[in-house]
Nucleic acid binder design. Sequence first.
DNA 1: CGTTATCTTGACGTACATCAAATGTCGTGG
DNA 2: CCACGACATTTGATGTACGTCAAGATAACG
Lengths: 252, 252
Amino acid sequence: MDISHNGLAEHRVVGSVEPCSHCVARPSTVCAAIDPADLERLARATTPQMVPRGQTFISEGDPADHFFNITSGTVRLFKLLPDGRRQITGFARMGYFLGLAVRDAYTFSAVAIEPVHLCRFSRSGLRTMLDDFPAMERRLLETAANELATAQEQMLLLGRKTARERLASFLVAQSCIGQHGMRESRRVALPMTRGDIADYLGLTIETVSRTFTKLKADHLIDLSGPHEVTIRNLAGLEGIAGGLGDSKALLF
Amino acid sequence: MDISHNGLAEHRVVGSVEPCSHCVARPSTVCAAIDPADLERLARATTPQMVPRGQTFISEGDPADHFFNITSGTVRLFKLLPDGRRQITGFARMGYFLGLAVRDAYTFSAVAIEPVHLCRFSRSGLRTMLDDFPAMERRLLETAANELATAQEQMLLLGRKTARERLASFLVAQSCIGQHGMRESRRVALPMTRGDIADYLGLTIETVSRTFTKLKADHLIDLSGPHEVTIRNLAGLEGIAGGLGDSKALLF
DNA sequence: CGTTATCTTGACGTACATCAAATGTCGTGG
DNA sequence: CCACGACATTTGATGTACGTCAAGATAACG
């Protein structure tokens, strides 16, 4: 599916062709490597776009003609087996560069789980930018290195951690996303469903749900609703996530 | 542990400071991006080194001062949990560039499982090379993208495949390493132990062993010894690896 | 505000882990 | 070269964490 011809809405910044200069996501993206003086160049290389909730905008196996920079919303990245088994490889948020794990064809699919705004690069346009701005290529390499370290951490989780450790790891990671201070008792938004969490952690919906319930019973978290968790004991969760067993020493 | 001060043997090419020009591994490494005219530069940036079987030359958590290019032998890359649970994230062979998944400290450990020859870069030396030779940085980014796609494939394996599918996937991947023609009935060397395979696939030694036995009983492979497998039915293995269930249609 | 999907909880099943012991492999030194 | 010992592998018996099936409760959306 070629995103540029499938009827997705394109939104333009009114009265300007330089959306990049006002982009709130820029500091946290690969675009931060571009000098402010060159932002017009950057703006010409990208097309801002809106993806409605539920829409697939990358399909595994399609020719990888475009790369994307998420500027708002959340994206589910996943791979499928022929019988429908699904592994979610990550959730992409503001600042995430989509298209690193690419060969000639996309090796994963991407669906917006919230309304998403993103900037689209053509493959050739990005290549030109990278050739003209080595700092951008350098930044992209750093990003890739980070992704890779994260992926290996996830392999440890999927291969060797218990359900409880997996969910604790997930919650700790999510709590680091919106760092609004307060090491204890912080609110974490979970835009994804239990099914998404299950497919990310290599579990089933039921096991995820039961494990949430147990973490709550252990006073490690509170569950306001299915999509909001309050962390009551971050240190305890971190201990479990790291595989220490839940040494009750850290619990209060 | 700083590899440059721990007594590892360093082997030098006799009568020459340009080992790179004769390096058999070069075409398959990131070094292939360097123009033959600049090989002397490359040679000065690297230190060839020998690592004996069983030796740890990267320890998770140590400052990431060096990067490595494997020129021969096999390396086990892994992460540990505090209680000793181990996840092997990959096996590095000739041509593998070690140090992509790095932050300030190494995020994994590396041990030679066979005698290994490698070329060591200092962090600063590599950075200088990458700045001077953009083609090398470009190549490294491609390598990282490939690694990432492989890592995500492994997440699918660890999160969603059965023991049988995991082992089939592993064997198919290994059979692609030494591509000496013949799509059917090819010999695959497995320098790693059953324990290594288990920790790579998120299983136990016993399950790996039992699954090998069953694949043999199903005439998909032959087991000459613990470290050599002959693939009797590659298409069948590939079907299983891909999650088709073993549709007996492909078996003969 | 009703319809539908998502989430929770319970009862039960199973693929793989654990525990245990026999067998095989390989490096080492006599 | 062969025999020993240490370790790796295989195989069997049993256990369990998590999956599957099922039903009710809650939340989301038009």
